[in-house]
């Protein structure tokens, strides 16, 4: 094969795959602006005859989407911030504090990661039910407050902080909390951003757990609301596409803004393997 032919082949393949990756999103966006019924024709149309906002208006007025959007934002932001604090304190302790059984505790945490989350779902559900947290934000926030993966990520990063820095702060009379807050956290900023995006997106996109603990429709997160809407509005293709656009846009924005940190996180997470 000649060099030139090879080059064309590679570029054409890459372009076709890019096209296939984007096509569902392109269609989703355009269909969301079509008039009712316009997406259900043969041959399928890519562009709407006329851009209409009807479905977005319906979603935000009649179908209460504002409420679900707020639920999703409060839960995702809440889990992200609380878990960042708790995981970073823990990761720092595992990296820099000396205590008995540290290695054993850390290793048992790591090996527990092979247990799939579904195993704990029923008991956690029952616990939250008896505590009265079902159908509250806490049902998602509390179990999400600490994560083994998060602790691991922070610990690996914090190991690279020189001990002398911490010693110096201690000699200056800093308490443990002050050292953590004023020395460790600022130094850990890149990994905190990385872990923050992972947590935010994971919580935003999660489906099974919110589906289980949010049974009252006013507490639905966007994915649960969307799945529920699908049951009643299967024929309203354009409306469902508008709902999908709204659900996806926030994660796309976060990803595009911070993609460098996200990609780095994938690499850090895979180093261990």
């Amino acid at each position: 094969m000649s060099e030139k032919l090879k080059k064309i082949l590679v570029i054409v393949t890459a372009t076709i795959i890019a096209f296939m990756s984007l096509m569902p999103f392109v269609w989703m966006v355009f269909a969301s602006f079509m008039k009712s019924g316009e997406a259900n024709v043969y041959p399928p149309k890519l562009f709407p005859d006329e851009f209409v906002l009807t479905h977005y208006i319906t979603l935000f007025t009649r179908l209460n989407l504002t409420r679900y959007l707020i639920n999703s934002i409060v839960i995702s932001v809440g889990v992200t911030f609380i878990s960042l604090i708790i995981n970073s304190m823990s990761g720092y302790a595992f990296a820099k504090m000396a205590f008995r059984g540290k290695k054993q505790i850390f290793n048992s945490l790591l090996s527990a990661m092979v247990i799939p989350g579904q195993v704990t779902m029923l008991p956690v559900f029952l616990m939250l039910k008896y505590m009265g947290f079902i159908n509250t934000y806490w049902a998602i926030i509390i179990p999400g407050m600490a994560s083994i993966f998060g602790i691991f990520l922070i610990k690996q990063y914090a190991l690279s902080i020189p001990d002398s820095l911490i010693e110096a702060a201690r000699i200056d009379g800093g308490t443990e909390i002050q050292i953590y807050w004023k020395v460790i956290l600022p130094l850990c900023k890149p990994i905190l951003v990385t872990l923050g995006i992972f947590t935010f997106m994971g919580t935003w996109n999660d489906f099974l757990w919110p589906l289980i603990v949010m049974t009252d429709s006013s507490m639905y997160t966007l994915p649960v609301a969307l799945a529920n809407l699908m049951g009643e509005h299967t024929q309203d293709t354009e409306l469902m596409m508008a709902g999908s656009v709204i659900t996806i846009i926030p994660v796309i924005i976060v990803f595009l803004a911070l993609q460098k940190y996200y990609i780095k996180g994938i690499m850090l997470g895979s180093v261990k393997g």
Binding site: I17, S21, P24, A31, P44, M201, V224, L226, M240, G243
Partner: peptide, 29 residues
Amino acid sequence: RLIYFLPVVTTLVAVSIVWRYIYHPRFGL
């Protein structure tokens, strides 16, 4: 890389809905 990666970050429920219409026997893309 960015384009190939886009489906990864998007909400599974939303893309499942989109694909349900893409797979539609009569009107699907």
